[in-house]
């Protein structure tokens, strides 16, 4: 860490454990996260209030409490220790992704295999995979690690990273697959000795789009087309997109007011509590609220 200058403030001898902890904590990050969680809950309340989904707010609150405890625990653990578990984590993620493909609950995921039901708890293996990929990347770019690889070893690792991405893509969950790829590219862009290989990979990826397009199912193509031009199929694939654009746009500058969004309240946005919370927010809080939310998540 001595070379990078990215090390966290070092604990000083004689300082209490609490003070060391406080010094080690990235407060702006935590506050932003807390703010987003609070806004999320607040928004969820509006999105589910008075519907048959109103229990979802309580569930969310319950999980946030549990997650906060886990968060504190995780913060106390030195993340460098987690890096040591990176490959085990990736292996687990790949295993879960295969299991979800074989045993997953397709109904829950609206026709795709995304959810695993473990002890009454739904989990998405792709979420585990995302973290595992990050850890593996961290491990690979750790001091000295990359230079020790032979070409073969490096290729094996790259393939190891490609496997979960591929498994996520065939669930299919193109959104998460794309996000995971972007994580890899971003880390590579920051940590590679030279940026050029990353630029080459990105360009190659872009060039591969037409080939990918050809291998896609029609319904996948239709979804992408409908995303680009929702008017092309206003009651089918474009319905969600169109209704969410209507929701966002109808918020105008100041919004319709908390709990007053008609697109949200009367279900014109399907699955708005899970798939379109931002549209709910934008409808009720308008341009000002929408921009504030985006900027706060960027800080």
């Amino acid at each position: 860490m001595k070379d990078t200058g990215l090390a966290l403030p070092r604990a000083t001898v004689g300082v209490s454990r609490w003070r060391r902890f406080r010094a080690a904590v990235d407060w702006p990050l935590i506050l932003t996260m807390l703010a987003l969680c609070a806004i999320g809950l607040f928004n969820l309340y509006s999105a589910t209030r008075g519907t048959r989904h109103s229990a979802k707010f309580d569930t969310q609150l319950k999980w946030m409490v549990i997650a906060s405890i886990l968060f504190i625990v995780a913060t106390a653990v030195d993340y460098r220790a987690l890096v040591r578990l990176a490959w085990i984590g990736l292996g687990t993620a790949i295993f879960l992704l295969i299991v979800v493909r074989l045993l997953g609950d397709a109904a829950h995921g609206k026709g795709s295999y995304r959810w695993l039901n473990i002890a009454g708890m739904g989990i998405q293996p792709s979420e585990v995979a995302k973290i595992a990929v990050i850890l593996v990347l961290a491990r690979m770019f750790q001091d000295g690690e990359l230079s020790g690889y032979t070409t073969e070893a490096l290729l094996i690792r790259l393939v190891a990273l490609a496997i979960p991405v591929g498994l996520i893509a065939i669930q299919p969950d193109l959104g998460t697959a794309t996000l995971t790829t972007l994580i890899c590219l971003t880390v590579g862009f920051l940590a590679m000795p030279s940026v050029w290989p990353m630029i080459h990979v990105t360009l190659a990826g872009l060039l591969a789009i037409p080939i990918l397009w050809e291998t896609m199912h029609d319904y996948q193509k239709n979804r992408i087309l409908a995303f680009i031009d929702p008017a092309s199929d206003p009651t089918g694939n474009g319905w969600h997109t169109r209704q969410s654009i209507l929701a966002v746009g109808s918020g105008k500058i100041l919004g319709k007011g908390y709990g007053e969004g008609t697109q949200n309240q009367f279900d014109f946005l399907p699955e708005h509590w899970t798939d379109f919370p931002y549209s709910v927010w934008a409808e009720e809080w308008g341009f000002i609220g929408s921009v504030l939310l985006v900027s706060s998540s960027r800080s």
Partner: peptide, 28 residues
């Protein structure tokens, strides 16, 4: 990215907001 998003929000909510607002009313 932020500017892109904010610009799009401006377009949707400020420039075309009235139109979308009316359309959500006719939805209901």
């Amino acid at each position: 990215a932020f500017l892109l998003i904010a610009g799009r929000l401006w377009q949707l909510q400020v420039m075309r907001g009235e139109n979308y607002y009316e359309r959500t009313v006719s939805n209901v």
